[in-house]
Amino acid sequence: DLSGKLIIKAQLGEDIRRIPIHNEDITYDELVLMMQRVFRGKLLSNDEVTIKYKDEDGDLITIFDSSDLSFAIQCSRILKLTLFVNG
């Protein structure tokens, strides 16, 4: 049953990962930690990372904090994230 699940599709460069999320109350910090685990070796804990999501118009919107993240989650059951490393 995928109805209650949130799917995160995260892209870093050419690498795209699909991550099912069971807890929608994820904070921004938890998201960043999850991305560091998912992209281990490509995304380091001291990297400056910018996370953006695609909205319904196809625009890339920056996620700065947990309220941005929860808004993005409300918009779509499949959250398409693009990561930019400013390392």
Rank of each mutant, 00 (worst) to 15 (best):
D1K: 11
D1E: 06
D1W: 02
L2R: 06
L2I: 14
L2P: 05
G4P: 07
G4L: 07
K5I: 05
K5V: 07
K5H: 03
L6N: 05
L6Y: 10
L6K: 06
L6D: 01
I7G: 03
I7M: 12
I7S: 05
I8S: 01
K9Y: 15
A10P: 00
A10H: 01
Q11Y: 03
Q11K: 07
Q11V: 07
Q11G: 03
L12E: 01
L12C: 04
L12H: 03
L12A: 00
G13I: 01
G13K: 04
G13M: 04
G13P: 00
E14H: 07
E14Y: 11
E14F: 10
D15L: 14
D15F: 14
I16A: 11
R17S: 04
R17C: 11
R17I: 12
R18H: 15
R18C: 15
R18A: 14
I19P: 00
I19Y: 03
P20V: 14
P20L: 09
I21G: 03
I21A: 05
H22G: 11
H22W: 09
N23R: 09
N23S: 10
E24G: 10
D25L: 08
D25P: 06
D25R: 11
D25H: 10
I26L: 09
T27E: 04
T27G: 07
T27K: 09
Y28Q: 00
Y28W: 03
D29V: 08
D29E: 08
D29G: 13
D29L: 04
E30W: 08
E30G: 09
L31P: 00
V32A: 06
V32T: 07
L33T: 13
L33H: 08
L33F: 07
M34S: 13
M34I: 11
M35H: 01
M35G: 01
Q36C: 08
Q36F: 11
R37G: 09
R37N: 10
R37I: 12
V38S: 11
F39I: 00
F39L: 00
F39W: 06
R40H: 13
R40S: 13
R40C: 11
R40Y: 11
R40L: 08
L43Q: 02
L43R: 03
L44Q: 10
L44C: 07
S45M: 10
S45N: 07
S45H: 09
N46I: 09
N46Y: 07
N46A: 04
D47L: 15
D47N: 05
T50P: 07
T50N: 03
I51C: 03
I51N: 02
K52I: 04
K52S: 12
K52R: 13
Y53I: 03
K54M: 13
K54W: 04
D55P: 14
D55I: 05
E56P: 13
D57I: 15
G58C: 02
G58W: 00
G58Y: 01
D59Q: 15
D59S: 15
L60F: 14
L60W: 14
L60P: 05
I61L: 14
T62Y: 02
T62W: 04
I63F: 02
I63G: 02
I63Y: 00
F64R: 15
F64E: 14
F64D: 06
D65T: 12
S67F: 04
S67R: 13
S67M: 07
S67K: 10
D68Q: 12
D68P: 01
D68I: 07
D68Y: 02
L69M: 01
L69F: 04
L69N: 02
L69Q: 00
S70W: 07
S70P: 01
S70M: 13
S70K: 12
F71R: 15
F71E: 10
F71V: 15
A72Y: 06
A72F: 14
A72K: 01
I73E: 00
I73H: 01
I73C: 07
Q74W: 01
Q74G: 06
Q74T: 06
C75L: 11
C75H: 15
C75N: 15
S76D: 14
S76G: 10
S76W: 05
S76V: 06
S76I: 04
R77Q: 14
R77E: 14
I78G: 10
I78C: 09
I78H: 13
L79M: 04
L79C: 08
L79A: 06
L81Y: 02
T82N: 12
T82E: 15
T82I: 13
L83V: 11
L83A: 02
L83H: 01
L83M: 04
L83N: 00
F84E: 14
N86Y: 04
N86V: 06
G87P: 11
G87A: 11
G87M: 10
